[in-house]
C-alpha cells in the first residue's frame, strides 16, 4: 500500500488507479524510434500534479535524445509488475502517449525540483550541463488492468 505522502502528491483529475501508479512507480519504459526502428529504454520519471506532463532526464548524447530530436512522438509504459505469477491478476500497466520536448530556463528549475523530490539521488546527474530534462506532454493514457481490460483517458485540448 502506498504511504500517505504518496497519496497527497498524486496528481488530481485522473482516476485513482492512474494517480496511484504515477505516484508509486519509480521507473518507466520509454519508446522512441529512429527511421522506423523502435527503441525502448528504462528511465526514472516523475509526474506533474495534473498528470499532463511526465518528466525524465537524459544526456544529450543518448540514443533516446537523438531519436526525440528527429521525432518527438513517444510512449511511456509505467506498470506495477512485481515479476511474479500474481502479476497476471494484480498488475496494472499504464501507457502514456504524446510528444516530448526539452525543458529549459526558469521552467527547468521548477520542474527539476519536482523531478528531484522523487529521485533525490539523481541530483548530480540532473545538475550536469550535458543532462537534458525532458517532458512528455501526455495526450492520452491507456490503462490495462485485470489482465485484459483497457480504458483510455484523453486530456481535452
Amino acid at each position: 500500500m502506498p504511504s500517505e505522502k504518496i497519496r497527497q502528491t498524486a496528481p488530481q483529475g485522473l482516476p485513482p488507479e492512474i494517480r496511484l501508479l504515477l505516484a508509486s512507480q519509480q521507473l518507466a519504459v520509454l519508446a522512441t524510434h529512429r527511421q522506423g526502428q523502435p527503441h525502448a529504454s528504462l528511465v526514472a520519471f516523475a509526474a506533474s500534479a495534473d498528470g499532463r506532463q511526465l518528466l525524465f532526464a537524459t544526456t544529450r548524447t543518448s540514443r533516446k535524445y537523438v531519436n526525440l530530436q528527429m521525432d518527438p512522438r513517444a510512449a511511456l509504459l509505467i506498470d506495477s509488475r512485481g515479476q511474479t505469477a500474481a502479476d497476471f491478476h494484480e498488475a496494472q500497466a499504464l501507457t502514456a502517449k504524446g510528444s516530448v520536448r526539452e525543458v529549459t530556463g526558469a521552467e527547468r528549475d521548477g520542474l527539476a525540483s519536482l523531478f528531484l523530490a522523487k529521485h533525490p539521488h539523481l541530483r548530480e546527474f540532473v545538475g550536469a550541463p550535458t543532462c537534458a530534462l525532458m517532458a512528455l506532454q501526455v495526450q492520452v493514457y491507456e490503462v490495462a488492468s485485470r489482465f485484459q481490460q483497457v480504458l483510455t483517458y484523453r486530456f481535452s485540448p
Partner: peptide, 12 residues
C-alpha cells in the same frame, strides 16, 4: 466535470 475524457478500449 473533469478535463479528462474516459473511453473504453478493451472491456472484459
Amino acid at each position: 466535470a473533469t478535463a479528462v475524457i474516459e473511453q473504453a478500449r478493451q472491456l472484459i
